[in-house]
Design a protein around this nucleic acid. Sequence first.
DNA 1: TAGCTGACAGCGT
DNA 2: AACGCTGCCAGCT
Length: 281
Amino acid sequence: MYEEILKITYRIPEGKRTSYGLIAQALGDKIASRAVGEVLARNPRPGRPPFGIPCHRVLYSDGRIGKYAFGEELKRELLREEGVEIVGDKALGEPRVPEELGILKRRSEEQMKVREAALESSSWEIESFNGKILGLDASYKRARLYDYAISVGVLMDSSGEVLDALYTITRVSVPYIPTYLAYRELPAYLCIAKEFIDKADLIAVNGHGLAHPRAGIASHLGYLLDIPTIGVARKLLRGTKAIKIGKRYLSPGYKSKIYPEAIKAVEKADKLTKLLGRLFS
DNA sequence: TAGCTGACAGCGT
DNA sequence: AACGCTGCCAGCT
């Protein structure tokens, strides 16, 4: 995703400008506009092609210049040199619309497919769970260019006793984009979950399952591995419903019901990711 | 218009 | 432990 955003930015011709939102639209969903800004804030080579990536040509949607690592003044100056007309605090003329890549559009379609399978295999009944639960969570460390994910899996029995645990540290080149969390966290979860595939009866993921407008990370993981999963989230998405138990919002992921025992597993994983995060900083 | 909010997380108090 | 703040955004109230 970083690569795509930088590539789109690289292709904005001299004398033209675009917006964070239009780049997000080219990726397939305008909700990613903030993530575009976050990625460009870490542009490894600010400047002009062929060596630089001209993130100074990306402005706010209303034409205002917006932020720049070396200051808004320089951004405005670079644009003026390139022939972009600026009056007051805004650039004139129409922004350039980048070529559509549609990555996020394909992903949201994939999520809808996952949702169908999740809906059909799950129910919202509350039951107690009597097997081994794998709790999953991740924390992040910012580096110069990329984030690093510290992902943890904790295997528990239903009484809450820890049987086993595993963690990974991976470089992440997918920014956080609202409703696309799965694509940021899933790769590491898949690695960990595969190690426990014969031992865990249920996977509890920090995030949503069916309490997501399409399909949450818990549903997605369950679908890919064909294992029962449940989502345990801290916050609810707008316009969605989940079962609140204590401070957590639970929703079935895949082939699952609502099992309150899942909360403990996720909270344990949450503690461990934070502990490890401190250890590595 | 100013203010709010996104499955934010991390970091400070 | 629980808030509040911030981060190259944008659309809505």
